[in-house]
Design a protein around this nucleic acid. Structure first.
Length: 281
DNA sequence: TTTAATGTTCATGA
DNA sequence: TTCATGAACATTAA
């Protein structure tokens, strides 16, 4: 379920439901999800008897703040969490539930991931900043943190196509394949334009559209496309506002031209050939 | 049977 | 160094 609005929606639910919970036990059914220098046993033993004080987020990474460490969870393509009160725990775990957190109050948090691409890491508090620096994460897509001049300068140094740059999380975090197509459409920018070819006014518009789109989608609980549901089993509502993603063959909402689909950076890419011209005149 | 899917990371070669 | 491409991870569904 993974772009920033969906991760943020998950975070809110997780925070509500796991705050102040003491981890009593963890069942791990697919150890490859645990990406750490620690052995899976050490990872497990470190977490036991720690309390979740807060669930925060950096980019698309969920951060469970424990006593001595933070548990970092990335959902990648299909990861999701389901919370069960003690009276409502399923008799048999779902087929794709790969990690179960059992809390002292007998409630449970199940990590579910059809493709098993998600990852858990464990970081000491002192190393958290360095951990995220190594991931090369850009600023959060908010008006306060996402600086226009810095964005503009960084783009001018990139000779890669703009969609690839935005997906890299290096200049700004949070965009994935859906929202990047939406934001480029809103900005009238062809996805294969080189980043350093954007004009000042295009960069300004692009930044504003990134901030606005992520904010609106977050307020609506993200988008439910394919399978996404948040921790409380709720669907997002932003999919009703999507303009080009998955709309190939349909008319552009602005001009009626047929939306096309191409491949960029190995990802399906949707755009309007009229509103997002390859060459500017 | 083949392909593509809301992501990240690594290897290879230009 | 930078960038493009492809692969890997793994499963499902069209």
């Amino acid at each position: 379920m993974p772009e920033l609005p969906e991760v943020e929606s998950a975070r809110v639910g997780l925070h509500q439901v796991t705050k102040n919970k003491l981890i009593h036990d963890i069942e791990i059914y697919w150890p490859n999800l645990i990406a750490t220098e620690l052995s899976v046993d050490e990872w497990h033993n470190t977490l036991i008897n720690q309390t979740i004080h807060q669930v925060s987020r950096r980019g698309k990474y969920l951060v469970f703040e424990l006593d001595t460490h933070v548990l970092v969870s990335h959902l990648r393509m299909e990861g999701k969490y389901f919370y069960y009160p003690s009276e409502d725990i399923p008799e048999e775990k779902a087929k794709h539930t790969h990690v179960i957190f059992k809390f002292k109050d007998e409630t449970e948090l199940h990590y579910h991931d059809v493709r098993k691409f998600g990852r858990f890491e464990l970081v000491q508090y002192a190393d958290v900043d360095q951990f995220f620096q190594e991931k090369k994460l850009g600023p959060e897509p908010t008006g306060e943190e996402f600086d226009l001049d810095a964005f503009s300068v960084a783009l001018s140094k990139k000779s890669r196509v703009i969609k690839t740059v935005l997906l890299s999380q290096e200049l700004v975090v949070g965009l994935g394949n859906i929202y990047v197509d939406e934001v480029l459409f809103d900005s009238g920018i062809y996805p294969e334009r080189l980043a350093n070819s954007l004009t000042e006014s295009e960069v300004t518009t692009l930044r504003e559209n990134i901030i606005r789109t992520i904010e609106q989608a977050t307020e609506l609980g993200g988008s439910t496309i394919r399978t996404y549901k948040n921790t409380l089993g709720e669907s997002g509502r932003y999919q009703n506002y999507i303009q080009v993603y998955g709309k190939e063959g349909q008319p552009c909402p602005n001009c009626g031209t047929t939306i096309e689909k191409i491949k960029v950076h190995g990802r399906g890419t949707h755009f309007c050939p009229f509103c997002q011209p390859k060459e500017k005149d």
